[in-house]
Amino acid sequence: MSAEPKKDSLHELELIISQILRGGVLFAGIFLLIGWLWMWFRDGDNLQTFTSYEPRPLIENIHWALVMNDRALLVSLFGLVALVCLPLIRVLMTGVLFIKQKDKGLAIMAFAVFIALVGSFLLGIDI
């Protein structure tokens, strides 16, 4: 008998998750667009510089942008970071959803996925 109202509140949480995701994509997309257009108007095309592979770590890139006061680069990097973090938020909130559902097994699994995601991000840092 109590299943219905519980299902409703869960459905509400699912809807909140979807709104956050949609809003997040828009938010990150706007930052990406502004940052990129800004760089493009200022520097012109530089796609040809990417024909050879010379990765520059994100931390170095941010540091460089801060030192050079390159706001266009900072804006677009912020958009990229925000975008990549969206699925993290989704998994975390799904974990909360399962806790509310009193579903321990799947809550643990969702948090395990979250920790694995954070771990995989950190693998990108060259120590």
């Binding site: 994509v25 997309g29 990406l32 667009l33 940052g35 990129w36 760089m39 530089n46 796609l47 990417f50 990765p55 520059r56 770590p57 994100l58 931390i59 170095e60 890139n61 680069l73 677009s76 990097l77 958009g79 990229l80 970071v81 975008l83 990549v84 969206l86 699925p87 993290l88 989704r90 998994v91 996925v113 694995a116 995601l117 995989s120 991000f121 950190l122 693998l123 990108g124 840092i125 060259d126």
Partner: peptide
């Protein structure tokens, strides 16, 4: 999305994701 973000996050930190390429591609695809 979750599958892709696992490696996207790592590539981003390593420096493989460059806004000059990724921004027009992502915005265009959205």
């Amino acid at each position: 999305g979750v599958t892709a973000s696992a490696s996207a996050g790592a590539y981003l930190l390593r420096g493989d994701i460059r806004p000059e390429i990724a921004a027009p591609v992502a915005v265009g695809i959205i």
